[in-house]
Design a protein around this nucleic acid. Structure first.
Lengths: 243, 243
DNA sequence: CGAGGAATTGACCGCCATCAATCATAGTGG
DNA sequence: CCACTATGATTGATGGCGGTCAATTCCTCG
């Protein structure tokens, strides 16, 4: 359950997140209308929606995706606690993507019409919003690099490594293991590969002892093997803002 | 040549761009340190650069890209007049991508240290910066959808259509034709395909009379054929800000 | 006119998609 | 407690889209 006060938000105390001034946190707290819960599989946002609020993912995992008419689906990036959602939605053009929950999800809700207040009176927070948007673009850049240039094996290694690092920053890793709610179909849709080929690649990495992925648990045994498999172009992440 | 005053910027008068208040334009004008010229092939920004100013592309074409160690290159998006560059560069982590010119390019230069002034005193412009960042992410989303899910033929059709529409909005199209500075290698690197396969696909579309691409000139004959080939998921663009 | 980049075409092949079937796991109702 | 069902994972067989190697032609430009 999300706390009622942003000042005591347990996310914010993680070293991953930067600090804000008390005044800024007070404003966030006041702007926050409350929280919403979604169950696994529910859509926080559907492609084409012409109205949405702004959300910060508080707990759980989700993903952002686009679909073609014939139901081919590309997952654009994975959303984890601290990620900010909904800025792209315009009433004129509608949401260019959908967001679907992988687990039960809790989000903090911010009414979009207050965004102007935020930009007007809290330039530091406005900058944070921009930073979060730019950061998400960086993730998509990385995914595009993978899908466009890396082999199947490299893609899988890259995404596993990226998720693992992100999860560790969020303190979701214990004994090199974490809860991993993606199915192989999700991984396939994220990497632009067929489900079957994705399975074969996972199987191979499993057999080689790089990591194991079974029953929604990911266990990484050999990060250095992962790194070399990934043809890794490291994109470091400094402290990130939380809104 | 860029005019010395932003108020008389010929870009701004295009219907593609939204209006700003006189005060905002005055601020942009004051923040602008001047212009820089690059020749075709020059890099405005190199992957890893730990310092850069902010730029608005005034004339010419460029592209944003990422490379792996072994020189595989993914072009992330094409940059055309009005595009904003450099926000992602942080002194701590360096530029996560490079920017290279396709033609001779002229950019307007804004010192990054004045960005705080902009956010503090001109929330409307701050919002514009965020919008531009978010919009670019939308383009990358589209490209990822293409590279991940579309066939070679569909990818080529999609990108040609997208460039054509963008060029038309910028008044670069006359008689269905425009100057098109990308080589087939660029298209290949953008679509995650080999040069040779890209050539074959282009050849086929050429033979079928959909468009012709020769001598740096793109001529589109059948946009509706393009649209159906692209399995198009239209992402409409409203008026965009210009900084 | 020569040189070098870009485009084109052919031959060959492999990674990965597709089709199909089986197995594993978990949840449900009788 | 055990069919029964649904979802997800796994494996085999086959084929095609698109990658790779190689050679030639075309353009552009000094």
């Amino acid at each position: 359950m999300a706390p009622t006060k942003c000042a005591t938000c347990p996310l914010r105390s993680r070293p991953l997140f930067k600090t804000n001034t008390d005044e800024e946190i007070a404003f966030i707290n006041e702007m926050r209308r409350g929280t919403l819960k979604f169950s696994a599989g529910a859509q926080i946002l559907s492609q084409g929606d012409d109205d949405s609020d702004l959300y910060t993912l508080y707990s759980g995992w989700a993903f952002r995706f686009k679909e073609l008419e014939d139901a081919r689906r590309q997952i654009l990036n994975i959303l984890m606690p601290g990620d900010f959602m909904g800025f792209h939605v315009s009433p004129h053009t509608g949401a260019p993507y959908g967001i679907e929950c992988l687990t039960e999800v809790e989000v903090c809700v911010f009414p979009k019409r207050k965004l102007w207040d935020l930009f007007r009176n809290h330039p530091g927070l406005a900058y944070d919003v921009t930073w979060l948007t730019a950061h998400e673009e960086g993730i998509v850049d990385d995914n595009l690099l993978s899908v466009g240039q890396r082999s199947g094996m490299e893609r899988v290694a890259t995404i596993v490594l990226a998720v693992y690092k992100r999860a560790r920053q969020l303190d979701l890793v214990q004994d090199n293991a974490l809860d991993f709610p993606l199915t192989q179909q999700h991984i396939a849709d994220m990497l632009g590969m067929s489900l079957i080929h994705t399975n074969r690649v996972l199987r191979r990495l499993h057999r080689d002892g790089v990591f194991t992925l079974a029953r929604k648990k990911l266990r990484v045994h050999d990060t250095s093997a992962l790194r070399s498999l990934a043809a890794w172009a490291e994109t470091p992440v400094p402290k990130r803002p939380l809104i």
